[in-house]
Design a protein around this nucleic acid. Structure first.
Length: 478
RNA sequence: CUGGGUGUGGCGCAGCUGGUAGCGUGCUACCUUGGGGUGGUAGAGGCCGUGGGUUCAAGUCCCGCCACUCAGACCA
């Protein structure tokens, strides 16, 4: 029963053209629309509902670990942005500037926040006086602007929704612990709620955040083998604090500079969901964040009592799940295709024959498996099947990653794999940025991260042959 | 930013060598519809991305601009 025959032919097949497939999906599933400003997208109700589910789950995790939400300004005065040298250099090429207020030219131009470290620091300077004021665990849900050159819906947009956490701590150890705590929250979220397996690790110096001491990352592999940085957590040390002259009196009554972190995930996660789970029939949503978890489709709905029974089933389900029903005039087949396009994890079919037998048919989105379910055990079965869909998606994604993970021992092997395959390439590295640059140039790959779970592949750097310091996962990234 | 492609009803496209627009789909109404995009009838809807040029005449030829899109270089 679980054939993968393509039922809808107005989506470009993913094997034919993955990029086209992606844009077809986001538009056909009504996740977003293009706006009249390049790179700024309109997030439509269905897409926004996914984001709201992501927000709801993550926000609860943040609150549980002591974080508080705040709202910072949209604008950053140029002088403020320039306080931390590496930070400005990193972001200057992609900030948007406001130079006029009405018809008057501003004395100091304002940048539209690309990220808010500087704003938080400017504020922390005023409110952190004593070790008793620490830690400060702030987060905000907002949008930021980065003037990207090439844009793609959800993956790289000029304005995007995200959450940015900014925290201050007494010691480096505390701050590093925070950085790791958050990375753990992100990773668990991806795996337990989005069904996306991730590699946890640290960025190399050349890939880390502008102004950070170290950047921790979770890297996910998309269906086509490309890598997606799904979330980052930065340990900022005391660079910003020093630049902004933030000091507190410590327990010994001496002045001390606090240590800082920042971390974020964005609507890019939605892009990740699409490219990890989607197929040629459309979107496939992990149950935890699907706006509709189960859709009820009456069959032969003009027959007496069918719609009423279907409504009743939907009402029952709504008490426990995000359920919907489609009683429109479209044929059942049309509806099947429609909700597959939208990635709804489960579909419930109910017709006169079923009603007679006190049952219904439930079909999984991920493998089209049909199950006859007695209405007496509806809720239990639906819960089970939702879990099964989640597990199925995770397994499939993990398998894809395993099938596309390679190992390279020397430069020739590296170049060959990079040219012939797609995916992650594990290889040893000496720690030198020159080798990274060289690999980028001749193999077209960048270092994705140095995984926390290291493997010993060899003793020497894949590029220069000098003694290796760590294993790096390399790949092509979105 | 570099190179390629494309701009024509909401969406997808046709319109060959110039003579002021056509198809599919979607939409509206009515009927039809039992398990994978049901079929029918009627109807509404576009001055052809934008600015200029050639011409008696431009969607069609020429130049500029803009936007979108794909592939690279840069980034969540």
């Amino acid at each position: 029963m679980a054939d993968n025959k393509k039922m809808v032919d107005d989506i470009t097949s993913m094997d034919v053209d993955f990029a086209k497939w992606y844009t077809d999906i986001v538009k056909k599933a009504e996740l977003c629309d293009y706006s009249s400003v390049k790179g700024c997208m309109i997030v439509r109700p269905y897409g926004y509902a996914i984001w709201e589910n992501i927000q709801r789950i993550l926000d609860a995790e943040f609150k549980k670990t002591g974080h508080q939400n705040v709202a910072m300004p949209l604008f950053i005065p140029e002088s403020l942005l320039q306080k931390e040298k590496d930070h400005v250099e990193g972001f200057a090429p992609e900030v948007a500037w406001v130079t006029y207020g009405g018809s008057e030219e501003l004395e100091e131009r304002l940048c539209v926040r690309p990220t808010s470290e500087t704003l938080f620091c400017d504020h922390y300077k005023n409110i952190i006086k004593s070790y008793r004021d620490l830690p400060k665990l702030y987060n905000q849900w907002c949008s930021v602007v980065r003037w990207e050159k090439t844009t793609r819906p959800f993956l790289r947009t000029r304005e995007f929704l995200w959450q940015e956490g900014h925290t201050m701590h007494e010691t480096a150890e505390d701050a590093i612990r925070e950085t790791e705590l958050i990375l753990g929250i992100y990773a668990e979220f991806c795996e337990k709620h989005l069904a996306i397996p991730v590699v946890r690790g640290k960025k190399t110096d050349s890939e880390k955040f502008a102004g950070a001491v170290s950047t921790y990352t979770i890297e996910a592999m998309m269906h086509d083998g490309k890598s997606l940085q799904a979330g980052t957590s930065h340990y900022l040390g005391d660079h910003f604090a020093k630049a902004f002259e933030i000091e507190f009196q410590n327990r010994e009554n001496k002045p001390q500079t606090p240590h800082q972190t920042s971390w974020g995930v964005s609507t890019r996660l939605i892009g990740g969901i699409i490219m990890t789970h989607g197929d040629d029939n459309g979107l496939v949503l992990p149950p935890a964040i699907a706006p509709i978890q189960i859709v009820v489709i009456p069959v032969a709905q003009h027959k007496e009592g069918v719609i009423e029974k279907a409504q009743e089933v939907k009402e029952r389900l709504s008490k426990q799940f995000r359920a919907d029903i489609d009683v429109s005039d479209n044929s059942p087949g049309w509806k099947f295709a429609q909700y597959e396009m939208k990635g709804v994890p489960l579909r419930l079919e109910i017709g006169p024959k079923d009603i007679e037998k006190n049952q219904c048919v439930i079909v999984r989105r991920d493998n089209r498996e049909k199950t006859f379910v007695s209405l007496d055990e509806l809720e239990t079965k639906v819960a089970e099947l939702l879990n099964a869909v989640h597990d199925g998606l995770y397994e499939k994604a993990l398998k894809n990653r395993e099938n596309r993970t390679w190992t390279a021992h020397d430069l020739d092997e590296m170049v060959q794999i990079a040219n012939e395959k797609s995916g992650f390439i594990k290889a040893m590295w000496c720690g030198d940025a020159e080798c990274e640059a060289k690999l980028k140039e001749i193999a077209g790959v960048t270092s994705r991260c140095m995984p926390f779970e290291q493997e010993h592949i060899g003793d020497t750097c894949v590029c220069c042959g000098k003694p290796a310091k760590s294993m790096v996962v390399w790949g092509k990234a979105y």
